[in-house]
Design a protein around this nucleic acid. Structure first.
Lengths: 174, 174
DNA sequence: TTTTTCGTACAGTTTATTCTGTACGAACTT
DNA sequence: AAGTTCGTACAGAATAAACTGTACGAAAAA
């Protein structure tokens, strides 16, 4: 099989896989970088990745740092090799899903709390201003607010349902 | 209660709520537009929204169209009113979650299939080229590919778990 | 029919994001 | 110590995204 052909197949795989990775809120370049590294399987240097992606080393350096921050990549050390080496994390599902769920829960919880603060505030005001002319508008907004909070509640519930498995389990079938 | 103050509270609510909406892959402006419309509760015209957001009518027109495409907003008609009127959908959770889950399932399923195509292709090549020098590299990529497919499988499974309720149910507690 | 009001297509501008080249400190090699 | 090789900070260039003003067809009003 010609080198060219392998190259080509790899490119298709990477492109396809990167699309999925992008859905976890990585930029297209970050997604591609991760995909390359993951497909490669073994540690790579900045220069290798730079060459593989056709981008500047600076760019790769930045990208790798982001992936490191997200715990999707780690630096490894190999005897005799001076350059930094990086590998993609193995446990795809665990890593991605965990941080995905975490992100959602954190955000919705926070926003729900903010809305509840406002609600509490309005509860007080409601007491003071019963029987004025802006009541209708006021109650309207108030009930919307309750709905928004309930919305957040439901989202939280949904994401808590998804339990990331403690270890990546391959159920390759169907 | 002064107009200014109501204005201010509304602004806080909208800002906070928009953050959540953004997480469903809407742009910041789209999210804000939806939020305004939702909080308002009653139908609004392009001009009203334009004023409320401080953006050009063109911009609102585009934004509303996107929201329409996503089924998050609908056009309503009111006797005697010539301008187009729009309202935000009521069933927040159902609308957002349904399209969210749908988006994920569609994408991952599609990508999984692409990868399986490639896999099938490689299966064939594997037969023809046993005992050559590139076998190691080949098998490496091959096993990665299997892992990627399994990854997609797991994502599918996770999202299928989340069943959007047929109707929005408020469970306001906790 | 003529005039006004609406909504949106289009083109150009502004703003934000991503990428690159240069430069420099740190660590390794000789 | 002098010379290489690395990684990254920084500033500017390229690219992409968001927004706006003008213009025009369709529909309503006069």
């Amino acid at each position: 099989m010609a080198e060219k052909q392998i190259e080509k197949i790899n490119n298709v795989i990477v492109t396809e896989f990167a699309k999925t990775i992008e859905m976890f809120d990585l930029s297209p370049s970050e997604a591609r970088l991760f995909s390359i590294l993951y497909l490669e399987g073994k540690p790579m240097t900045l220069d290798e990745m730079s060459k593989a992606l056709g981008k500047s080393k600076t760019s790769i350096s930045m990208g790798i740092r982001n992936l490191l921050d997200l715990n999707l990549v780690s630096r490894v050390w190999k005897k005799g090799v001076r350059k930094d080496l990086y590998v993609a994390e193995e446990s795809l599902y665990k890593k991605f899903m965990t941080s995905f769920i975490h992100k959602w829960l954190e955000a919705t919880t926070r926003q729900k709390l903010s809305l509840k603060e406002i609600e509490k505030d309005l509860e007080v005001k409601k007491e003071l201003f019963t029987g004025e002319e802006m009541d209708e508008e006021f109650y309207e907004a108030f009930s919307r607010l309750k709905e928004m909070i309930a919305f957040h509640q439901s989202i939280e519930k949904a994401f808590k349902q998804i339990k990331p498995p403690s270890k990546f389990h391959s159920n390759i079938q169907d």
